[in-house]
Nucleic acid binder design. Structure first.
Lengths: 220, 220
DNA sequence: TCTGACTTAGAATGCCTATTCTGGATTTGC
DNA sequence: GCAAATCCAGAATAGGCATTCTAAGTCAGA
């Protein structure tokens, strides 16, 4: 009596258990999360749990799928038709993700936890890459809009910029996992975003302060 | 009869076993690497292994320390007095790291594997953060030199740029762990490096191709 | 060559965890 | 209210793994 992730996801009664399990896997990783933990956190009976999902791996697959869909929706709705402009939308959605990470002291569920599982199961690691590509292409869409509005740094293409954003968020996740603070991570993300944007003359005053020897001349 | 990581590191006979174990932990992670694996890979007797290190955790600590020192040396020697200029040195050392990662389908031993162990042991996660800071400050040093030579993007400080580089490399590691290819990762890193450098007029031709409507005017 | 310390290979131990089983409780359909 | 199906809690089961033990083998020094 094996059940598939899709079936589990479509059952409204399983939404709460899946979310509880997601929280555990996200915070603790796959190996470090025991079925006992899941039983306690969901309040679900062990027997019922095995009946509903089939086993630990299948449960994780359902969690992963749920995360995938949720995250895809988040990015798609935020970036496909951004009200306050594409760059603002990217900032908003990314800062939301950073908050999620620092709240949990964890990175991306797909990229970090699923990668752990991907060692056994090639299908999982392929799913992770497809997730990354999905998010990247949403970012690329937004950056293409930014480009049309002249808000993208001319030195890069929307595609390159999107890849950079993804890598930066993954890096932020790695740092969150190791205990870096929210403020530090936001600063880091802002640096990335600043470089992605079209350079403005106003920014050069930073340089003046930093290296007066060569740029002490007033620039007003 | 407990031995400490420092003692193990100073014994030349243990260098080879430590390197073999490092390879295993790096590729497979901490939990996924059994002592049996280590026994096979090092050719060392189980008893001798326990005598030399004390246990699995202590072995990993020795591995971690070895990686730390090795990596610190790599960055320090490459970046403290770079012959071909600071930006070239950063590129060189980073590309070396990317090769190490793609060779193993893994990220950074400290940031990824040690983070796994850091869940049990606070001292380990603090060590990871101190490692990150060490590398970041080496990058910052190089970027400060670049700044003095007018090679740094005026929109950012050496400190910000160094943090961005670290995050980018961590992101690259996360992607390598999930099976991304070397070429893709090099492209990604190059984008990052391009943005860190001082923008040149020549780059704007990229933009012309992408968005002819607004920049079709010849710019030579 | 002999002795005593050290090393080895592999078996035993003990713990932890996923999964299954079981006998009793609870719900459901009528 | 009742029979049948379903669900529950916790006890077995089974396998994996770190760590320790053991009994035989090896080596160094005289």
């Amino acid at each position: 009596m094996t059940h598939h992730a899709e079936i589990a996801l479509s059952d409204p009664l399983l939404i709460a258990p899946i979310n509880a399990a997601k929280e555990l896997f996200w915070r603790q990783g796959y190996d470090e999360t025991s079925i006992e933990d899941v039983v306690c956190a969901t309040g679900m009976n062990r027997y019922a749990l095995y009946n509903a999902f089939g086993g630990k791996l299948e449960l994780f697959l359902a969690v992963m799928e749920s995360y995938f869909i949720e995250r895809k929706n988040l990015f798609m709705t935020a970036l496909s038709d951004p009200q306050g402009g594409p760059m603002a939308a990217i900032r908003e959605v990314s800062e939301y993700c950073i908050t999620e990470m620092t709240d949990r002291g964890a990175g991306c569920l797909m990229c970090d936890v699923a990668a752990e599982v991907g060692r056994y199961d090639k299908a999982v690691s392929e799913r992770v890459l497809s997730y990354l590509e999905e998010i990247r292409s949403a970012d690329e869409m937004a950056l293409a809009q930014a480009d049309e509005r002249g808000e993208l740094n001319p030195a890069i293409s929307p595609k390159e910029g999107a890849a950079l954003l993804i890598a930066n968020m993954l890096g932020v996740g790695a740092m969150a996992r190791n205990g870096a603070g929210r403020k530090e991570l936001l600063t880091l993300f802002n640096t990335c975003l600043r470089l992605l944007g079209r350079p403005t003359g106003a920014q050069s005053h930073l340089r003046k302060r930093r290296n007066p020897k060569t740029t002490a001349v007033k620039q007003i």
